[in-house]
Nucleic acid binder design. Structure first.
Lengths: 153, 153
DNA sequence: GAGTTAAGTTTACAATTGTAGACTTATTTT
DNA sequence: AAAATAAGTCTACAATTGTAAACTTAACTC
C-alpha cells in the first residue's frame, strides 16, 4: 500500500470530518454557512461547530482567508487527499487476504459511474497480467514463514 | 450503502483491532499467544494487552471458551464482518462523487488474486448495464435539489 | 505443598474527542 | 454612536482510548 499522510498532520476525527466535507463541497465556507449546513444534518449547537472549526485550524486542515472578519475557511488539503488519508489508514490494518473480498463488496454496494466502471475494468485487465494466484494473510509476523499463508484455518 | 452493524456493539478501536486480528487469524487465542504475537509488532506491555482483551470482552467482541484457566478467547463476529463494519463506517461518510475514484485507487494500490480480479471484472460488467453517467455529490442536504450535482466547482 | 509463573482483575492517568456554555470583539443596522 | 448580531475565543466536562502498574488468583513445577 502507498501511504498518504500529506505532511504529518494529526488525523481528522469523525465529527471534524463532517465540517471538512462542507468546506470541500462549497470550496471554502464561512462560519454561518457551516453552522446552517451542518445543523440540517447533525444535531449540533453553534458552539460545537465553532469548536470543530477551531480544532481543524489547530490541526492544520483549515485556514482562514483574508483579514476582514467574516473569514472564509479553506481546506489545506483536497478532499481526495483527505479521503485517501482515511482509507489508507483503514486498509493498512486489514488482513491482506481480506482486501480482495472487501473491495468486491464495496464495488457491489456503491453506485459507480459509467466512467468509473470503465476505468476499473481497464485497471483490472492490466492487473490480471501479474496478479498472484492467492494473497496470503499477513496478520502474523511469522505467518508467511511458518504457515505459508495457512493461518486463518 | 448497506449498513452492517452486526448487533449494536460499540466500535472496535484501532488498538483493539490489532488484538482481534490475531484472534481471527489463530481462530481463537490464549492470553500468552496474544501477548507474544502483539509484542512482535506493537510496543505494548503485557498489561496494555490485557486491558485491550478485557475491553473487547466488555464490548462483546471476544468471549472466553471453557471454564478452565488458560481460557481461549474467541471472536463473536467473523473477520469479514469486522472488516465490513469498519469499511462501512468509513464509506458512509464519503462524498458519493468520490467513491468511484477512491475504489479505483484502492484496487490500484492493493494486491488482488486472480480470482478476486475475475469476480470484480464480472461484477463490473453487470453494473455497467445500469450505471448512471455521473454520480452526484451528496455532501449537502440541498445539493441535489439546488445545484443538480454542481457543487464542488 | 511451597514456590513460581501465568492469567485475570482493579485501578489509574493522560490524550483525544464529542459536546457546549460563556465571554469578547467585530460588524452591521437603525 | 448605540444596539443588535455575528464571529471568534476561552473554558469545561464527560466519554473513549491508549497506556500501564499493582494486586489477586489459579496452575504448574519440584
Amino acid at each position: 500500500m502507498t501511504s498518504t499522510q500529506p505532511e504529518n498532520l494529526p488525523e481528522i476525527s469523525p465529527a471534524e470530518w463532517e465540517v471538512m466535507r462542507i468546506v470541500w463541497t462549497l470550496n471554502g465556507a464561512q462560519t454561518h454557512e457551516l453552522i446552517s449546513s451542518l445543523q440540517e444534518k447533525m444535531d449540533w449547537t453553534e458552539s460545537t461547530i465553532k469548536t470543530l472549526i477551531r480544532r481543524l485550524q489547530q490541526k492544520g486542515y483549515l485556514e482562514r482567508q483574508g483579514t476582514q472578519r467574516p473569514y472564509v475557511y479553506q481546506a489545506t488539503i483536497t478532499e481526495q487527499a483527505g479521503i485517501n488519508q482515511q482509507t489508507d489508514a483503514l486498509f493498512a490494518n486489514l488482513c491482506a487476504m481480506h482486501v480482495g473480498p472487501t473491495l468486491i463488496r464495496l464495488v457491489k454496494n456503491n453506485t459507480l459511474s459509467q466512467q468509473d466502471l470503465t476505468e476499473l475494468s481497464q485497471l483490472i485487465a492490466t492487473k490480471q497480467a501479474t496478479a498472484p494466484a492467492v494473497v496470503a494473510c499477513d496478520c502474523l509476523a511469522d505467518c508467511q514463514v511458518e504457515n505459508q499463508g495457512e493461518c486463518h484455518e
